[in-house]
Structure formats: C-alpha cells, structure tokens
Nucleic acid binder design. Sequence first.
DNA 1: GCGACACTTCGACGGCCGGCGAAACGTCCC
DNA 2: GGGACGTTTCGCCGGCCGTCGAAGTGTCGC
Lengths: 249, 249
Amino acid sequence: MSPRDNGAVTSPDVHAEEPDLAALGALLADRTRAGICLALLDGRAWTASEVAALAGVAPSTATSHLNRLVDGGLLAQERRGRHRFVRLADPGIAEMIEALAARAPRRLVPVRSLTAARRHRAVGFARVCYDHLGGSLAVAITDGMTTRGLLSWESGPALTASGGAWLTGLGIAGEGVAAAGRWHVRTCMDWTEGRLHLAGAVAAAVFHRALEASWLVHGDGSRVVRLTDRGRDAFKHHLGLADEVLTVG
Amino acid sequence: MSPRDNGAVTSPDVHAEEPDLAALGALLADRTRAGICLALLDGRAWTASEVAALAGVAPSTATSHLNRLVDGGLLAQERRGRHRFVRLADPGIAEMIEALAARAPRRLVPVRSLTAARRHRAVGFARVCYDHLGGSLAVAITDGMTTRGLLSWESGPALTASGGAWLTGLGIAGEGVAAAGRWHVRTCMDWTEGRLHLAGAVAAAVFHRALEASWLVHGDGSRVVRLTDRGRDAFKHHLGLADEVLTVG
DNA sequence: GCGACACTTCGACGGCCGGCGAAACGTCCC
DNA sequence: GGGACGTTTCGCCGGCCGTCGAAGTGTCGC
C-alpha cells in the first residue's frame, strides 16, 4: 500500500496473481452445492426456498450455500420483494459445469419410486442444458445434422452452407448475421451419453424454435423436456431421425 | 446383490447413475492438490518426491494426495523401481484444468525474491500447456495466424487452405491426414491472458516443431519456456510478429 | 396494521480432512 | 550384504465446514 519501501529484496508489497483453483474446487466440493449447480443447469431462476427444498436442507443452510456460490461468481442473484432469485451467472459457467459433470466419476443413487425411475430415464433422453438441448435426443439431432451434411467436423464443428439454408427453412433468422458460416457453433459434452452434442447460438436457436413450435415442451418443473408427437414428426421430416432415437430409453 | 426381491415398490436393488460433481470438486478443493495439478500441466511425469518438494509438504502428505488424485482419475501413475511417476491422466484432463483455472478467482501471492518475480513474468510469457504452448506468446501466435489468413474463426476455429500449406512449409507433415482442413484444431482458454490460444493437434505439432528447431527451449525444470534469438527471427519471418509480443513482459 | 411468509443471522454441535513424525517396506548402489 | 534412498502406513492433532433450530428482519396481502 504505502510507497515507503523503495525496493528491498524481500519487499512484502510485491504481489503476483495466480488462479485459485482450490477456491473454485471448494465451491463444488460439497454435495449440496453441487446439486444446486446441477439443478440450475435448466437455466431458470430459482427462489431460495425452491433451492432448499430440492437440496433437502433447511432454509438457513441454503442461504449459506447460496452466499458462497454468489460470492464465488458461479451464481447471479436478483432480489425482488421478499424473494431471492438465483441463476447461473452466465452461459460459460453452465458450459463449465456440464463439462465437469461429464468427467466426474459416477455415483449410484437408489431409486425410491417408479416415478423417480421414469424421470431419470426422461432426463437422459432430453433435458435443458442451460440454453439448448441435452440428452440422447440432442446427440441424435447432432448426428442427424452431420449425416445430412448440415454440420461439418473438419477442423472443429461448423455449419455448412446447406446447414445455413436448413436453419432458414426452419424459420430461424440469423439476428444480424448474414453468412451461414458465421453462426456460432460450439459443442457440449453430454454427461449421460458421453458424447458431444451441439451447443452455442445455433443450438440455442434450434431449441428455442422447437419450443415455439411445440415440438418440445418443458416437463415437470425440472430440466426434463418432453418430445411431442408433432415434434417426433418434425424431426423425422427435417432430419430423417429413426423411431429408436425418438423414444425414451 | 441377491435376486430374492422380486420387484417391491421400494426395492433397494434399483440404482441409477449420477455424475458425482462433488467428488471431482473435492479433489481440487485443496490448495496442495490444486498446486500439484497445475504443476503437472507441463505434461512431464514427476516423481512423488518432486511433487512433495514443489508443494512444500512432507513426503507422507504427498503420498496421500497422490493416492486420492489417482483414485479420482485425474492422475496416472507408473511405478519404476523405487520411484513413483505421476502425470495427468490424459490431455482431456489437462484441458479441463486449464479451463477451470481460467475461470477461477485470482489469488494474490507475495513474491519473495527477484528470481521468483522473473519466473512469474516468464510463466505469463510462454509456458507448456500439456502438449502445446500457452502464455502471451501463444496468444500472439494465434493472432498472427489469424491476420495472415491461416486460421478462420467463422463458426469455430479452423485451419484454412493456406494454413495447411503454411504448416507444410514449416516441415510439419500431417500424419495420415491429407486435406488441410482435417487438422484437429481446438482452442484453450489462456489463464494469464484471459483469451483463447490455439490447442489441439495443430498446436501440438507447431510446438513440437519449435522445440525441435530450437526456436523454443524448456526452462528451469518447470513449465517455463524460453524464446531463443533464432525463435524470435523465425516468428517474425513466418508470422510477422512484432518485437513487443516477442519479449518477456 | 396485523398476521403470514421468505429469508437471514447467530451459536452450537459433530464430522471430516489435511498436516506431521516415526517406523516399516522395498529398491538400488557399492 | 549393508547402507542410503524413495515411498508408504499409521496414529495423532488441530482446524475448518456443513448442519440445524431459534430468533430476528423485511415484505406482502388482507
């Protein structure tokens, strides 16, 4: 702080920056906090009470966890009246968490009821992945786009010219982006499939369009997404997907 | 285990898999373990003693940490005689750790000596990033390749046709890969610069070539890389890099 | 304004985890 | 074979952290 030290060898005023990997790890090191982050992958803003109920802890405990996650930059919050809404801070955080989940070891959890088993299969089939679609359906869509020549994987994922036309045919207009190649294409490691599915602006636009056209509908208040009959027909028609990949495992 | 339960509603034999994000986080949540992972980003295989010395802990403590990291799948080990060599399990782990480090909060560490300060600047300038180059030099190289039209960023990073020719001109032959576009191009978030640098097979090949031609030489047994005079000339000639980006900050 | 509600603060308790040294084990070199 | 060396096991200690309930603060609705 003070400039009185004029350069001694062991000056305590000289500091260097280092990434505090341990601090980030500690944020995720608790099962309750990890569960919160995973749940928030649905992109919604949750209230503190909802978080507490989902995590199965007392409200006071949830408050403490949310404080740490917000301070650590993983979560963003918004206070409205007597409610505290929290969500993932930005899409990059969501991507990071999905990537981590894909590499994390598996844990066996007992299934308590038939509906829980159903829901688990549904999550593996189709779920919200922050702003786009995840699950085996998302992988199938990615595969379908590849075999139809809409996606090219030479030197990284990219939309082809016919891919751009395909998007236009779906009624998706590039906001301020003219050339087809300029679409933002990324991939996301799917933690149920262990394979890549499409992410980025293109995936988000397709997902948004599918919700709009009721090909997909949000499930039971979680990140589960349901495929409608209309959606089944649409994916068959637009991508030539087979029946096998269009049904819940 | 036993098949005596024939399907009661609350059968305890039914399990589902979930990613154990907390277990992975716990592996990185300790400052000593995080430091070990960061050090191993240089891609080398370290002995347990080296790890203990670097982390500043007793050998017995290092053993315990290495056991946990190996069990968790982050590290691979090889026993040779009375030595235990450890390294990052695979390139994907290295990528994950770099990505995490880029998003982790910063920590101020006191600089104890002038040589430590020098080394810190050297790490920011050029360092090994598992199998390719990181630091401001790597970012400058990526920028140079972009302005020369060797890299295209439309819909994700990709090598252009002239980029493939450029590699051939450097004496880098694609092993079993014919078309220039087929090179594996990825990006890696540089945690000192906060920007992307080139990763993947192309980056690894260029780095390997630069070491071979003595443009770059390994530093003082850490991940520091030093740029030689010959290397300075080469990067000026092949990429038109300016003097400013070719000197240690 | 008066309950109901959402959230927060505080203190206490319990468990886990990282640290070490001492001793044991195995390998290498002379 | 003997001694040095690298690594491991074990037991112990100290501190941090997650949990809760109870009490407090602020907001909404009637």
